[in-house]
Design a protein around this nucleic acid. Sequence first.
RNA 1: CGGGGCGUAGCGUAGCCUGGCUAGCGCGCCUGGAUCGGGACCAGGAGGUCGCGAGUUCGAAUCUCGCCGCCCCGACCA
Length: 577
Amino acid sequence: MRWSQSFAPTLKETPAEAEIASHQLLLRAGLIRKLAGGLYTFLPMGLKALQKISQIIREEMNRAGALEILMPALQPPEIWKESGRYETASDVFFKAKDRAQREWVLGPTHEEVVTTLAAGEINSYRQLPKNFYQIQTKFRDEIRPRFGLMRAREFIMKDAYSFDTTDEAAQTSYQSMFDAYVRIFERCGLRALPVEADTGVIGGKFSHEFMVPAEVGENDVVYVETGEYAANVEKATSGLKSPLASIPKEGTESLPAFESFETPGVKTIEQLSKAPFEVEAHRQIKTLVYVVEDQPVLFLVLGCDQLNESKVAGILGTSQFRPAEPKEIHGWLGAYPGSLGAVGVEEIPIYADLFLEGGQDLVTGANKDGYHLRHVCIDRDILVKSYADLRTVQAGEPCPITGKPLQIQTAIEVGHVFKLGTKYSEALQAQYLDEQGKSQPCVMGCYGIGVTRTLQAVIEQCRDDQGIYWPVSVAPCVVCITPLISKSESEVMQCAESFYQQLSEAGVDVILDDRDERPGVKFKDSELIGFPMRIGIGDRSLKEGEVEIKPRKGDLIKIPRDQAVDYVLNWLAEASK
RNA sequence: CGGGGCGUAGCGUAGCCUGGCUAGCGCGCCUGGAUCGGGACCAGGAGGUCGCGAGUUCGAAUCUCGCCGCCCCGACCA
């Protein structure tokens, strides 16, 4: 590729619309341009990098035995109604109407389509297992698109769906995708950690997310330095024992009954922990009110803990819930937040965190503004429907496996593997006949990679104050030849042309900066876009019979011009290992 | 959806509070010159519905109202 014939509109200044480094670089390096919020055009360099990532994904999916297909982005609502997700997913749909006013949806994901396909085509256990994948545009009406490609309305995703006869077989498919993902991100030059992920409403044990550690990530990953444990904070547990466990239990008969005491103006755990009350946070019960299908539900955790809404979703079996409004709370409990408690509450389901189990002599709100209760014993005074892990793990707590301190880091989710079970195959009748001729639902798995997000994650991870430094595997061009004099009759340019030809013939993705620009401009641009290797050719060094080799992340060296091509080829072979 | 900020040429911005004649600057772009190893230099030039619409006013980029768009935070933590 000749630079003068390509289109790489680099920007000297940072567009005001971009906040984070990778987004700024996407724009500055001329990789993308915005059409509207969350909608981007890929320019030649951006598209080339994207295609390289896609190709790596394709190769690894094929190697894992998955079959590439392409499904429609425009989908009939009926299949979503059949799966039951038409309502629950309605928030993310972009909808369209045809000339007959019939409604269609732009696919935010493809479980319904692929399962419909399987339902029609798969009849026998002999056809299984099968794993279908596609690389395709998804449409999601995000609440707030942001950070360029990181969270967009329209984005490219690789999604794969496996169909198996049994749970065990499905686990094999799952493992095979997991392994493929590890290879994919490794080949993309990305440090992506598999972490245990929340399985949400669908439940089940098997779900991992692939996370790229980054300050701008939208997820929190809990992990232990030595690697034995890593989980999304939504799912994470720790080896911490309840602070109440160390307090000796007594027979409830010998304990005083709970009593009310005045706490004027006290609305927070912290206030109650200070003088004159001095009730330690871990001796308080925090009472939170949520609304599920217009009905209240109470969640209790220790005063020092935070409720984990993902865990709440797991308990409730739905993500359709919300925190209650103060007015609603007052209607149900007779007090506003700050004085809430569960003592004496009988009509409302109460879930309590495991740490509260058996708790005695605790303090909680009295459901009367300005009053709290003390000497509360959970078993005796509160009608707990069930105990569950509801709390959010905090940094420094012991790892559940090794006991070493846990750390928390923000990260970008680039991939997710998920064992689905039979939810969709049952709803959409994707069944097969087993050896006994009995009809069985396929056991499914789904596996996604945000291709466009992966591109940005690479940039977020591979950048310095000059610009991007692409890993060789995903660089839009691998070698940039930079003649410092662009006049075609010059020896410098002829040398550049010769390199260009030799490297192109050797199959190297090479760009020749044949623009009539001053050297400084060429250097800056090539560093901004981030080609892994630059060959600088100037008349000074050429007089000495030498050219300059400058890896984007290495030191400049001069070598004889007739050794340059071999040197670069060797360097690339080395870098590609 | 709630809160905050912003909208002036392709990009970055000044001017707005305190209304006033041809809306200024840098980058980029075009022409010419000179230069040719780190976004250098000189001269000339093109490019603007000041987001859109209403209103106030003799007069609006500037004040008021409405709308649209963009960015950030939030939409849990009592």
